[in-house]
């Protein structure tokens, strides 16, 4: 298999790692773009989702949004946003990725607060907690497992989707693959395969790490009772775009 051989050769060339557009630079770019997108999406969806869960409204809206976001191709948004007033460059890419990260984060935040045992909520009210205190000291801690689960799903999804930024020359590890295709499969097949391998490894690694974060984020009091979200609210059965 010459292509596999080519891929190994390509990965073994130190210059391919240290070049200005090499693996290291591309990985850094990939990580900061993804990080910014997830951060932005969290900053928007968590407060809104938690508040909606607290007042118990907006469930159907979250579902509708999740469904609609599935129908919009990531490639389309990545193409359209740079042509608006935002202009080319990282901000448009970050915004496009953040928009796709909002549904899982929002749905999990909403569900996390919503799923708090009504009896626990009633007990809190009976103790004289105000709405704000109830949210802060009862609902939020109990929602942490859901928030962490949403974060993992959104982060892995963004890392995967960020590869598509290569379609609009937006940087990240996807560029290695698209540049390989640009060389043609005979000359660039090894690079294509190597790029695919790197991206897949990054996503699997991130998923593994975030599972650990998810476990660490579980409040101590919840650890023994196996109080984990059984399934994500955001329906993890959608493939990563």
């Amino acid at each position: 298999m010459t292509i596999i051989h080519d891929a190994i050769l390509w990965l073994n060339d130190p210059l391919n790692w240290t070049n200005p557009n090499g693996i290291i630079a591309r990985t850094e770019e990939h990580l900061w773009i993804s990080g910014a997108a997830v951060g932005l999406a969290c900053a928007v969806s968590w407060p809104v989702g938690v508040w909606m869960g607290h007042v118990g409204r907006g469930g159907p809206a979250v579902v509708a949004m999740t469904n609609l976001s599935r129908a919009v191709p990531t490639v389309a948004l990545l193409t359209i946003l740079p042509l608006t007033v935002i202009g080319f460059g990282p901000p448009a890419i970050i915004l496009a990725l953040a928009l796709f990260a909002i549904p899982p984060l929002l749905a999990n935040a909403y569900l996390g607060v919503r799923e708090v045992d009504p009896q626990v909520r009633d007990a809190g009210r009976g103790m004289g907690l105000s709405g704000w205190q109830l949210l802060r000291s009862v609902e939020l801690p109990l929602a942490v497992p859901y928030l962490a689960n949403g974060l993992r799903i959104a982060a892995v999804q963004v890392l995967a989707t960020a590869t598509l930024a290569a379609y609009v020359n937006g940087g990240g590890l996807g560029m290695i693959i698209s540049r390989g295709f640009g060389l043609g499969l005979n000359a660039g097949g090894g690079q294509v395969l190597a790029g695919g391998l790197l991206v897949a490894l990054l996503c699997l690694l991130a998923d593994g790490l975030l599972v650990l974060v998810e476990r660490a984020a579980l409040p101590k009091a919840l650890r023994r009772t196996d109080h984990r979200p059984p399934r994500s609210a955001a329906d993890p059965i959608t493939p990563t775009p």
Binding site: A160, T161, T163, G174, L185, V192, C203
Partner: peptide
Amino acid sequence: VLYTIPSLALFAFLAPFTG
């Protein structure tokens, strides 16, 4: 595991073999 792998990477795995 399959589900975690980005589509672009999957096409990158396949294309050198399937053309």
